[in-house]
Design a protein around this nucleic acid. Structure first.
Lengths: 363, 363
DNA sequence: CTGAAAGCGCTTACAG
DNA sequence: CTGAAAGCGCTTACAG
């Protein structure tokens, strides 16, 4: 294990100044081609790699971006969203020589501390903001800290895309409380997926459709709920609040919600779940109670994880493509950090993937 | 967004030298209590946070550890092992002011590059080595790079604990090819879990038991296979190589393996799967083919993920506790980085959690 | 117990 | 096109 070569070693070996080596390496103008090639050759021979901390100190740049996930460990491991999202992020970071700093914090208190520490210590140049919440306190905090960020979805309207209100899209909801997003957003509108799921069930004759959603505090939960209810109203049905159950996204609460719904005097004939693990747990509960799916109960999931296609019956789900989402978010964040601004990105909206867990309501 | 306070600001405000501030902050001896308190007070007032890159540059320490995962994104998101492991790691990192640098690389070529870059750029002070492979090339590489590491399991014998060969444990296998582990290991012996799963099935009367394992190149796959076969031999049965199917750990290949096994002229009456997603996919295939579980087919999983208890029938699985594993690995790595050495850790071995996906063989 | 200074390995004006 | 020097914000011997 030989001592690491520094820029001084390279300069000496190439017979030039450190400054020139730096210029050559970062290919900035002002270095003659021959000198440049010579320097690069020497650097390669010496297996020279710049020290990130030295660069960071000079440039006030960390060459890293941060993701802090404020969910219970149990949920994170059950829900395939984040692993896929992260894989997408990594895909672009790797080619850009950037690094991902990941933080998993249980509760929200710790969350603020983590952001402050990351920002103050210059650990990261920017962060991803996921699981947007109503009047998300992280947005002003990040602004105050001067830490660039990219939001997943619009803070005003959840994850909504540019679609905007109109064109007969009943799930649109109101365009936010007027608060503009100071950060670029990368959105994947899940409204069409939710709407399609409900319409699909309506078309199959279902009239009592339940909705098992994520934490109310998360914007996308309330937005999906709005889309869900608007679609019902569009069909002339009055949404029954008793058929909406809030959960923390765990399979455990998905199962509990299903049990509660099925034990009602007037149980639903279909349930729309907020993620696949809950839907799979719901499937389990239905089977356990001797119900057949979709004969007695239709079920839809959300996110279309790998398992969706392999459970029995295979799960009708809404595909959101977390991998591409991660890629787009990373590209946007890098651009924001580099240029000081970046345009909003709207990915292809979520769409329904119909499989066999949904069927006609029993006559 | 006010300018960040530096150590110079604190020194000035406290009327002392930068050096003394540094001593006070890192509570090293040689600062009078009163001065110390004054400095700390000023630091708090100014909301001072040391610049990590400046500290890194002075101390040649990055205050970060690395995890590079060389699996296909698809697999990572299906398998809850890593998310849980990472959550455990974070739990201890957070309290130690350390940070996790995560890298996800598809293929193994990129893997080496990533390690070299992390090491050369001084991005991390140490790394976790997961998914140990036969004669793992990463071990000599890391040694050469001078990058401290902690291995999950012993390189010689897979994930085996200290249990060692003997005490009637048929799954022990040979104690490695003599190559000593230059790094401390944190092990969670999965042999007892595998043995218990097979014995459980044998007790239920099963004689044709299949094994759907992970990639052969991964040590734990071959070690579990050895444990599996030894347990069968112990019961006087000759393992049938045709009943062992290698997969890449995806639900897709778990499903395919199940189909292949069930289409045999002499299908198995029980299948032991290498992870839960494959087992759940296997469950789906069985149901799809009109088989009942466990009536016609018994199934066991591995890792005991959250979903295991909520599918139907609930999945008998082997609990490996990735969260505690992550905590222990992080503590060990931090100790190694700080002290230059750390003792091996053996966690409680994996154990079987019996649920309802296993039952007596049909008469 | 405290201060002044050098050094970590880069980048970046500033001169020539 | 190239060199010499200052500076980024810390830590750490070295003196006193």
């Amino acid at each position: 294990m030989k001592r690491k070569a520094t820029i001084t070693d390279v300069a000496k070996a190439a017979g030039v100044s450190k400054g020139l080596v730096s210029f050559a390496l970062n290919d900035r103008p002002g270095v003659s081609p021959e000198t440049r090639d010579r320097i690069l050759g020497v650097a390669r021979d010496l297996d020279y790699r710049p020290s990130v901390s030295a660069r960071s100190l000079s440039t006030s740049t960390s060459y890293a971006v941060g993701l802090v996930i404020a969910r219970d460990p149990e949920i994170i491991s059950a829900d395939p969203f984040f692993p896929s999202f992260i894989a997408g992020v990594e895909r672009v970071l790797l080619t850009e020589g950037r690094t991902l700093v990941l933080s998993v914090v249980g509760d929200d208190d710790h969350e603020a501390t983590v952001y402050r520490t990351l920002a103050a210590g210059q650990r990261v140049d920017g962060v991803f903001l996921t699981d947007l919440r109503r009047d998300d306190p992280r947005i002003p905090m990040l602004q105050e800290l001067g830490l660039p960020a990219v939001t997943l979805g619009h803070p005003g309207t959840g994850q909504m895309g540019t679609g905007g209100p109109g064109a007969g899209d009943p799930g649109t909801g109101q365009p936010g409380a007027g608060e503009a997003n100071p950060f670029p957003s990368v959105s994947l509108d899940d409204t069409p997926g939710t709407v399609a799921a409900v319409r699909h069930l309506l078309d199959l004759g279902h009239r009592r459709i339940a909705h098992v959603i994520g934490p109310h505090a998360m914007l996308h939960a309330s937005r999906r709920r709005a889309a869900f209810e608007a679609t019902l109203r569009d069909a002339g049905l009055e949404p029954d609040p008793a058929l909406v159950v809030e959960t923390d996204f765990t399979a455990a609460q998905g199962a509990a919600a299903t049990t509660a719904l099925l034990e009602r005097a007037d149980p639903p004939t279909a349930i729309v779940f907020g993620n696949d693990p809950m839907a799979i747990a719901g499937l389990g509960v239905a089977h356990e109670r001797g119900l057949t799916v979709p004969g007695d109960l239709s079920i839809t999931g959300f996110d279309d994880s790998e398992l969706a296609r392999y459970v029995y019956p295979s799960l009708t789900s809404v595909r959101t493509d977390p991998l591409r989402w991660g890629e787009a978010a990373a590209r946007t964040l890098l651009r924001l950090v580099a240029d000081g601004h970046a345009a909003d990105v709207d990915l292809d909206p979520a769409h329904l993937v119909v499989r066999t867990s949904t069927g006609p309501v029993r006559a």
